[in-house]
Write a protein that binds this DNA or RNA. Structure first.
Lengths: 199, 199
DNA sequence: TTGACACCACTGCAAGTGTAGTACTACGTT
DNA sequence: AACGTAGTACTACACTTGCAGTGGTGTCAA
């Protein structure tokens, strides 16, 4: 079993590409080797089985999905308005579009998790923590809306991202700009008396 | 090329089961034969290629997803309240749970569509029509909320169904009853003056 | 010099496809 | 009622493909 971390990561990144391009059907050691540009047999040396490869791919996607700290910080200088939440949702969409392969791979993994309990455990962990952090971030930052707001945005944005990944034309009648703005507005709910009087 | 429609349908239903159970990776003529309980080679006689099989599976899922007319009619006797919309969303969830294989197969097809333009065209068609019909139904039935309400519910329920299919434990902290009720309530938005005065 | 890794080639295996051939059934014909 | 034909079910097989795993050799660095 080889230990060279850089090469292992390169192989995992290649595996993500393969997953996105050919689906789990196309995920073989050979394909990973080829796409990583390393000699045939290399992936065999780094992963004992396809299952282990998949497990490590899941971990790697988790790393790749983490947003850049500095950008978030910059965004959060703005006042806590609904527009700011809308902007955050747009940034999520942009992040996805800049790394479609990872999101597609994630989707493949979701399906794979249907058949692999241990993989499902990993994914449940990833998504749960993601949701928990989103809620904490939202509330700590004093953004408008409550916990349910965040959960609803999580669900609606999931639906939107998945549609955009797989059947983009379904939503073309509804321009994302207004769609997301309305989504945010309604997910937050009516302005309560307190907040309204302050603005 | 065999024409026996009953058998063809049986094979397609078997293919849906295979897709749900083993993913697109496991979808082979052999697997379909085995699960349909017919002799090896039968699927070969009915479909010229795996591609054609997949295309016909897409059509078949479309048929299987259509809700039963009578049940809808019964539900729609109730007054046009937010609770009624909530009930409709619950019925959607129930329908999915009673036929997980079809929904899982649909998800597999979504991913497959990423690589097959002609399949994507079919799916875009299915989902677009589904959404259009939902909107028409909602507005014609004079249910509370506007067009955007329906789109938002479509997105949020997509996210919810997919999470429930693949990583159900993520949403366990948020009981579906209250989650869906709130989702509906916010997707509809604030009661406008007119409607409020009528109730 | 030794150990870890890159590279390469070969063997063997497993799976699946497609087809050819046979048997059965139903239906129409004379 | 015997026959013929068409469509289909069933079976078996040959052929191809593609992958996994391993062992051997080269290479670099400590």
């Amino acid at each position: 079993m080889r230990q060279n971390l850089a090469r292992r990561t390169a192989l995992l990144d290649a595996a993500i590409e393969v997953l996105a391009r050919d689906g789990s059907r196309g995920l073989t050691f050979r394909a990973v080797d080829a796409l990583a540009g390393v000699p045939t047999g290399t992936a065999s040396n780094y992963f004992t089985s396809r299952d282990e490869l998949i497990a490590q791919v899941a971990q790697r996607t988790r790393e790749r999905l983490t947003p850049v700290e500095s950008e978030v910080r910059r965004t959060m200088r703005a006042p806590r308005t609904r527009d700011l939440v809308t902007l955050l949702m747009h940034q999520l969409l942009d992040r996805m579009r800049q790394d479609r392969p990872t999101y597609l791979a994630m989707l493949e993994l979701r399906l794979e998790a249907t058949r692999r309990p241990e993989l499902r455990a990993v994914l449940v962990d990833v998504f749960s923590e993601n949701l928990r952090e989103s809620i904490k971030f939202h509330l700590d930052a004093d953004l408008p809306g409550d916990e349910t707001t965040v959960v609803l945005l999580y669900l609606a944005m999931s639906g939107l991202l998945i549609d955009d990944l797989t059947v983009p034309d379904v939503l073309t009648p509804y321009p994302y700009d207004t769609l997301i703005a309305t989504m945010v507005d309604r997910a937050i709910g009516p302005r309560d008396a307190t907040r309204q009087s302050l603005t």
